[in-house]
Each structure stands twice: as structure tokens, then as C-alpha cells.
Amino acid sequence: MSLVLLVEDNIMVAMMMQLDLEQAGHQVLGPFARNAEALEAAHAAVDLALVDIDLAGGDRGTDLARMLRETHGICCLFVTGQAAEAENHHAYAIGVLTKPFASDRFVSVVNAALAKSKGVEHDPLPKVEAVSWF
């Protein structure tokens, strides 16, 4: 079981992601809609952060990913409709899952991202049209 930090301001999307992760046996911290609350909740035991780019109150997930990486050493997977912006900030994440995405592929992408964040070879990484690995 892995601990996943979920940062998504669309409550319907966040609930779907949380349900899928929990059904797959992962523990979910969140969902959070703002950078400050996600940073406050983040701790060393977090295995992966799933981070949207456009967040509530004008917060930017790219800023959060940088802070999580630099402050806590937490790897991020961007989950966003802003793929170009995510790729521009690839130094702070291991990849991007572009919205909208198929729910049935979501958990396999998260599992691959968890393995990649731990330096474990996950062969092959899922070849899903909505995923770009950095």
C-alpha cells in the first residue's frame, strides 16, 4: 500500500480519483484544492503526489510540485489538462497524465508512477495516449 497525496480542486474528479486509488489498495491523503493545505499535510511518508496545475484561488500546481520536491523530496505526477505547461515544468515531476483520461487506465498509470518514483523499473511503462513520462 502506498500513500498518495491528491491535489485536485474539481471535487468530482477528486472523488473519482480517490475512489479508484482506495479500491486499488492505496491510502489517499486529501484531496486538497490549495497549495498551502497540501504542503501542510505533506510529510516524508508520502510516496507520490498527484497534482493538478490549475488549482483553487489561483494556486499553481507547478509551484506546489517544486516545493514538494525541494522541501520534502516527494515525486509528483501532474494530472491536468495543461500538458504543455506540465512539460515546461518537467524538472519537478516524473510525468503528466492529461485530462480527460480513462478511469480504467488511471490506477495502472499511478502504479507505474509509484514504481518510477522509487527507482524501480516498471517494464513497460503504460503506453496510454494520455500519459507522457519525463
Rank of each mutant, 00 (worst) to 15 (best):
I74A: 07
F32V: 07
F78T: 06
I94S: 01
C75P: 03
A91T: 00
L77H: 10
P31I: 05
T71W: 04
D59T: 10
E70S: 09
T71D: 13
N10T: 14
A36F: 08
A14W: 09
E87L: 12
V79E: 00
I53Y: 04
G73F: 09
T98A: 06
Q18Y: 11
A102I: 02
R66W: 02
A41D: 09
T71S: 11
A84H: 03
K99A: 08
L77N: 06
G57A: 08
A24K: 09
E87D: 09
D9E: 08
A91L: 12
N35S: 15
F106R: 01
S103T: 11
M16I: 12
D52K: 11
L48P: 10
A93D: 02
V4M: 02
A38H: 08
R66F: 05
H43Q: 15
D59N: 14
E37C: 03
V4Q: 15
V131I: 15
G73S: 06
N10C: 06
W133V: 02
T98G: 00
D63K: 01
M67E: 13
C75F: 00
V13S: 13
F78R: 03
G81E: 04
K99L: 03
T71P: 04
H90R: 09
S132K: 12
S117A: 15
G61Y: 04
V109M: 00
A93P: 05
A91S: 01
E87T: 01
A56R: 13
I94M: 10
L97E: 02
E70C: 08
R69A: 14
R105L: 00
G95L: 02
R34K: 12
E40W: 06
E37A: 15
T71H: 07
L68F: 03
G58A: 13
S108H: 06
M16F: 09
C76F: 03
A84G: 02
D20P: 04
V28Y: 10
G58K: 06
L48V: 11
T80H: 07
A83K: 08
V110W: 00
D20L: 15
M67V: 14
A93G: 04
R69Y: 06
A45R: 12
E8C: 14
A93M: 04
L48W: 14
A36T: 13
G119K: 10
D47F: 03
E22K: 12
P100V: 03
A42F: 13
G30P: 15
D52Y: 05
I74E: 08
L55T: 09
K127F: 01
F78V: 04
E121R: 14
L77C: 03
V46L: 08
H43C: 14
W133A: 02
H43R: 13
A24Y: 06
V7A: 08
A65P: 10
M17R: 05
A41N: 05
V13R: 10
I94L: 15
W133D: 00
A44M: 03
E87G: 06
G61E: 05
V110H: 05
R66N: 01
H89T: 12
M15D: 12
E8D: 07
S132G: 01
Q23P: 04
P124C: 03
A113S: 01
